[in-house]
Simulated assay, not measured.
Amino acid sequence: MARESNKPHYLGHRKRLREKFERFGLEALQDYEIIELLLTFSLPRKDTKPIAKQLLNKFGSIKGIFEASPEELRLVPFIKEKTINLINFIKEISAFYHKEKIQEKPLPENLPELADYCIKKFGNKQEEEFHVIYLDSKYCIIREDLSFPAREFYFKGTVDKVPVYPRKIIEEALKLKSSALVIIHNHPDGNLTPSEYDIALTKTLDIACKSLDIILYDHLIVSSNSYLSFREKRLL
């Protein structure tokens, strides 16, 4: 009996929390309980409830925690590399799952899924990134190999502008024998309104693609939680 009384008080709570998740799923858990349960995998010998509440107080939401930088996360007591790596792993595997999912159907049937993948992959980046996804004649993403089934070609830039070189994009399309492509970039400030630069770039690239019988299928602008499609807005 003495041994039982020496067990940390949080072990019984942790067991009940896991059972609750197994029976009812995440919908049955409060936000702090979701983070608390997550932290048990990286902090098995800590009472993770107060740490979970600290994270939520600091970052405002589960989304805020997952979008926080490693430097920001390290400011929270007991959050070390193991927890940061766990959070990054979950983000990466989620993006990889969505990447495989968007290959199941041709793009016209799959545009929201592609946008969702891009939102998860780089929608919350603090610098603009420009990506190109190349498609075959059936509008399916071109497979490069089994490990990296989607070909992406991107450039990094500053907070408000990223340099894009249409010739490089076209050269890559010809190399891959691509019939169509989609360009995507993020707006770090969350405003999805296309800039004059975005519109001019789209027109320039569209003209270059048409001259080689390649279709610029769409231009997506993504933020941390939404997207704008040039095709849907009839800007392309």
Rank of each mutant, 00 (worst) to 15 (best):
Y227R: 03
D213K: 15
K210I: 14
S195D: 03
I199F: 07
I199R: 02
S226P: 04
Y217W: 03
D198L: 07
P194M: 02
A208M: 11
L201M: 13
L212R: 05
L216Q: 04
E196C: 11
H219R: 14
S226I: 11
D206S: 08
S223Y: 05
S211C: 06
K210F: 15
K203M: 09
V222I: 15
Y217K: 01
A208C: 12
S224P: 00
L220Y: 01
E196F: 14
A200D: 12
E196L: 12
T202N: 12
I215M: 11
D213P: 08
D213W: 09
I214S: 09
E196D: 15
C209V: 09
L212Y: 02
L201R: 06
C209M: 07
P194R: 01
V222W: 04
Y217S: 02
K210M: 15
D206E: 14
C209W: 04
L220H: 00
S211I: 08
I221M: 07
K203Y: 08
I214T: 10
L220N: 00
L220S: 01
K203P: 04
D213Y: 13
T204Q: 10
I215F: 07
L216C: 06
Y197Q: 14
A208R: 04
N225S: 09
A200K: 12
K210V: 15
S223T: 10
D198Y: 06
L201W: 04
S211E: 14
D218H: 01
Y227D: 01
P194N: 05
L220R: 00
T193P: 09
L205Y: 05
A208V: 10
L220Q: 00
I214K: 03
S211K: 14
S224Y: 03
C209E: 04
K210H: 15
L216D: 06
Y217L: 05
I199D: 04
I199Q: 03
T193V: 14
D198N: 13
L212M: 03
E196S: 13
T193K: 14
I215V: 14
P194K: 00
T193R: 13
S224L: 01
L220F: 01
D206K: 09
T202E: 11
D198C: 11
S223F: 08
Y217F: 12
S226K: 13
Y217I: 01
S211T: 11
A200H: 11
T202P: 10
D218R: 00
S226H: 11
T204P: 02
I215K: 15
K203W: 08
I199E: 08
Y217E: 00
D206G: 07
S195G: 05
K203E: 11
L220I: 00
L220W: 01
I214C: 05
C209Q: 03
N225F: 02
T204M: 05
T193A: 15
E196I: 13
L212S: 05
Y217M: 03
I214Q: 04
D198A: 12
C209N: 03
L212V: 05
S226A: 15
T204L: 12
S224C: 00
E196M: 10
N225D: 10
V222Q: 08
I207T: 15
D198E: 13
Y197D: 15
C209G: 11
L220M: 00
N225I: 02
H219Q: 05
S211F: 09
C209K: 02
V222T: 13
C209A: 09
T204K: 09
S224M: 01
A200R: 11
S223P: 02
D206N: 09
